[in-house]
Amino acid sequence: MFIKDYIKDIASALKSLATGMKMTGYYFTHHKEIITEQYPDNRDTLVLAERFKGEVVMPHDDNNEHACTGCTSCELACPNGSIKIITKFDVDAETGKRKKAIDTWIYHLDLCTMCGLCVEACPTNAIKMAPTFEHSVFDRNKLVKKLNEDGSKVRAGVE
């Protein structure tokens, strides 16, 4: 029956179209289902996961002390050379021994892939990943950061 099939085809086609329209119609009328976030407006309430890998930071305590000894294991662990550690030789005041110490901890945020290998490699937990993400700047040079603050020194007891 050609005509019967023909009509059946049309009926099923129209039904399938109506099913789709019913669904989109449901969403059109139910605004509670809307899931988008209004990003810059919800900045205050925005909660990022605490493990979020946004950038590498070096926590300093109140005495402006950090835990980095300048051992360069993070530099070696980094897959694309975004860490550069410049060391200097400190002379211990008491014993007079020369000791390798950190001078500048340079971090290339523009090269970093946020893999977290440097944090894994650090023997003293001196660096960690911070949950920040608004990194855009107009000048690329601003992405090259010095992580140890001026005048900071290694916390006592960290070897």
Binding site: S12, A13, S16, L17, T19, G20, K22, M23
Partner: peptide, 9 residues
């Protein structure tokens, strides 16, 4: 299924 799979087009 409603939106895509079943759709005749």
């Amino acid at each position: 299924d409603e939106l895509v799979t079943g759709n005749i087009i």
